[in-house]
């Protein structure tokens, strides 16, 4: 099943990736080549097989509930693109 241009645009939007208008045909073609490779999976019989999310199948360790972090705002915000009064600035969020 090949992706249409509109689907590529939708995926790019979901992933918040700006694509150049001129790149879309090429991107669509490459993605379809990759999906062609991936679709080879569909021929594999996986009935009755449990999905494997982590190779070791270990279980989650729990952390004791204690505050050990200190305020390092100045250091963290020194590398931020835009801050004011300790806040990160972004174009207005409309609710």
């Amino acid at each position: 099943m090949a992706l249409e241009r509109s689907e590529v645009e939708k995926i790019a939007h979901l992933a918040r990736l700006g694509l150049n208008e001129g790149d879309i045909p090429r991107t669509t073609e490459t993605l379809n080549n990759i999906l062609g490779l991936i679709d080879q999976m569909q021929a594999v019989d996986t009935s009755g097989i449990e999905p494997l999310a982590h190779p070791l199948e270990a279980t989650q360790r729990l952390r004791a509930d204690a505050v050990t972090e200190e305020n390092r705002r100045a250091a963290y915000q020194a590398i931020a693109p835009a801050v004011e009064n300790g806040l990160y600035l972004v174009p207005k969020v409309i609710e």
Partner: peptide, 15 residues
């Protein structure tokens, strides 16, 4: 939280 007071037309983010 997003704070919408006017920061020159921007929103401020407090995490």
């Amino acid at each position: 939280k997003s704070l919408h007071e006017d920061f020159h037309g921007m929103s401020g983010i407090d995490l």
